[in-house]
Design a protein around this nucleic acid. Structure first.
Lengths: 226, 226
DNA sequence: GAGCGCCTCCTCCTTCGGTAGGAGGGCGAG
DNA sequence: CTCGCCCTCCTACCGAAGGAGGAGGCGCTC
């Protein structure tokens, strides 16, 4: 049927997941790897490999960097991330790196089998329990993080927002001036106002604050061209 | 059964997708909206709404900003994006904004119905044809995108990386000097080297390049404290 | 030992970033 | 009309950023 590889440094968990697969997907060949290096070596030998279940947190592959390395070494090999980590951004980063699925370690057995089925069938699996939470990306965050920056963004005038949009692209004042067809001194005036309103003391910090907030949304909300 | 709303400004496409749904998911109630404003108004009336099929490219909601607004207005309302756009990053952005699925307009009818089924069943749907392409995020992109920035990061020395880590936090040279307990002139030397190696011409651009690449991974790979 | 790379620090210089203050013009609300 | 807000531009000043060049120390390899 299929050939899977479980890459996890914790033997107990490796056994547990292997057992679950044997029970739920009978007929599968199962390989095991205790480290990323191990997994990479085995992936070279086995050309019949259909899927890798990769744990984030392998000792020789800190977090998503490990996934990145595996993807680079074997770009055509489908990888599902299996992890205790449940952050939305982590999940999205994993998918962005080319993972074909993300399975939290807390996933109940039947759901896990269904997820693997889905992935082996050529689909992409994301955990509904996390990805379908209502409030989207700005959920259980500290109330004085994103929200306040966002509100400060709203106090900016249109021109200031346009200037800020260029700042976050890395443009210098002189370039911004040329693009918006105003004098550099005027750009400076706007920049000063932006720094004051954002309550920061340098251009870099303004940029950091801006892309923590949803600048793109603010721009389109006011029908401003970027 | 379920109540769906199709939000698309193109009447022909709206009809086509409505017909497909009626055929594939008999018993569904179907609402239609020709604009984002329209959709928002109808979503307020209907409390029984199960899913919105949102087109990107509505005249009053440019691209993902429209999704953002809809999500803000109705955070608990599941939204599937339906679009001609097929960029991986667009898809991931949509999911990051809280969409529960992404269906390219080129999706064949049976697959579309299956996708809607999956979403109505509480899952998350991503188009396999795009998301499971082999080479991951740096595929058909210009070869000098993320990969090259990443490799340039590797040419940085440890100290340079430590300095860069402070730069991306918005620290000034003086602050970095204090933190690393070296002279400000030395920090400048490092910064200059960083700019040269990253092939950029300003601090801001260096920062933008750095957090496009995986700086965190690089730091932990060398066991450096941030 | 010689060479090399890295880290450290220095000076001199230019450009950029940012503040302060003033000044004129457009535009809408009272 | 007056007031206030915004955009525009200016001068002047100062500190931060960045380039050029030199220099010493440290640890490595050949």
């Amino acid at each position: 049927m299929h050939t899977l590889m479980v890459a996890d440094d914790h033997p107990l968990f490796r056994e547990a997941i292997a057992a679950a697969i044997r029970a739920g997907l009978p007929g599968c060949r199962l390989l095991e790897a205790a480290s990323l290096g191990d997994a990479l070596a085995r992936a070279d030998d086995e050309e019949a490999l259909d899927l890798v279940l990769l744990d984030l947190g392998l000792p020789d592959a800190e977090g998503l960097a490990g996934l990145s390395r595996l993807r680079e070494a074997c770009p055509t090999l489908p990888v599902v991330v299996v992890s205790a980590e449940q952050e939305r951004t982590t999940i999205l980063d994993a998918i962005a790196l080319g993972a074909v699925g993300y399975i939290p370690k807390s996933t109940p057995r039947p759901d896990l089998i269904a997820a693997l089925d889905q992935v082996l069938g050529g689909q992409v699996y994301l955990p509904p329990s996390i990805m379908r939470r209502a409030p989207g990306p700005h959920a259980a965050e500290p109330p004085n993080g994103r929200a306040s920056v966002d509100s400060r963004l709203e106090t900016l005038t249109d021109k200031q927002l346009q200037v800020l949009a260029r700042m976050v692209r890395g443009d210098a004042n002189k370039v911004i001036a040329r693009e918006l067809d105003i004098a550099e001194t005027t750009v400076k005036t706007h920049v000063s106002a932006i720094l004051r309103k954002l309550e920061v003391s340098s251009r870099v910090q303004a940029i950091l604050a801006a892309d923590q907030a949803d600048l793109a949304a603010q721009l389109s909300r006011r029908q401003l061209r970027a």
